[in-house]
């Protein structure tokens, strides 16, 4: 059941690097991460790779396999033919540290810029009451394992390094959507999404949704609804007029 596959792995650092060919044994039922580990144990002891749970739950082993962002632990070898060359590179949107390991601090920086959950000030712990139907939308977004594949594939930053400053990326725009839809959150997030976090940069080409290993409908369920909520606030003259005429207390 085993055969020799042709792997082409990017080796290098933040200055230079190249694709290196390795013939390597593959057994039934294995995933790409197994093969990378086999390379470590046999041919390339210092091949750097980041991984953790090996069960698709932690989102550490993100890489690009044949040009597509994937979790290495969730990419079964049986999805390839025995003769094809399998190219594994680090995520191309982030600075590389070594080999397959990239510096993903961009994402942690962006995470800090999103204002945190703002609970109602007078609500004591234990008194939270929320209906299941009201938390379900945000729960979908909280399935996110922060593998950063969506951040990697999004052309807004992938193809335009200069946009990193002004664009939070799908994962963190989704975080804003998650909090904005939270039934108890009291913060005002919609204008900020557009003005501070770059929601307008998104041109909904859906690559984030395509690569999400958790199958979260990032575009349809988070980004577009958030865009529509922004329209409510910023671009809807009727709503604007209504808010001027019928000033509600607290609105």
């Amino acid at each position: 059941m085993s055969y020799d596959a042709r792997f082409r792995v990017w080796r290098g650092d933040d200055e230079k690097g190249e694709l290196v060919d390795y013939p390597v044994e593959v057994n039934e039922g294995e995933v790409v991460l197994d093969i990378i580990h086999r390379l470590q144990q046999t041919q390339a002891q210092d091949l750097a790779v980041r991984w953790n749970c090996k069960a698709g739950k932690c989102g550490s082993c993100s890489a690009e396999i044949n040009g597509r962002p994937r979790l290495m632990c969730m990419t079964r070898m049986s999805t390839f033919t025995e003769t094809e060359t399998i190219t594994v590179t680090p995520l191309r949107t982030f600075p590389v540290i070594r080999d397959l390991v990239t510096d993903v601090s961009f994402n942690y920086t962006k995470a800090r810029e999103i204002p945190s959950f703002a609970p109602p000030p007078d609500l004591a712990p234990g008194d939270y009451r929320m209906a299941q139907v009201d938390v379900e939308r945000s729960q979908e977004f909280r399935k996110c394992i922060e593998c950063f594949l969506c951040q990697d594939i999004c052309h807004v930053v992938r193809d335009h390094e200069e946009n990193k400053e002004s664009f939070a990326g799908p994962r963190y725009l989704m975080r804003i959507a998650e909090l904005d839809m939270h039934p108890l959150d009291v913060a005002d997030r919609q204008k900020e999404a557009q003005e501070e976090h770059g929601l307008g940069m998104c041109n909904i080409t859906k690559c984030c949704t395509e690569v999400c290993p958790e199958h979260i409908k990032i575009t349809d369920n988070a980004l577009i609804p958030l865009k529509e909520r922004v329209v409510d606030r910023k671009y809807d003259p009727l709503v604007w007029l209504g808010s001027k005429i019928f000033k509600r207390p607290g609105a």
Binding site: R68, P69, V156, D159, N163, G198, M201, N203, V211
Partner: peptide
């Protein structure tokens, strides 16, 4: 912009919508 996921787009600047 982009032609497909993971395929670099030809434009030098991008400001989205």
């Amino acid at each position: 912009s982009p032609p497909a996921c993971g395929v670099a787009e030809p434009h030098k600047k991008y400001s989205g919508e």
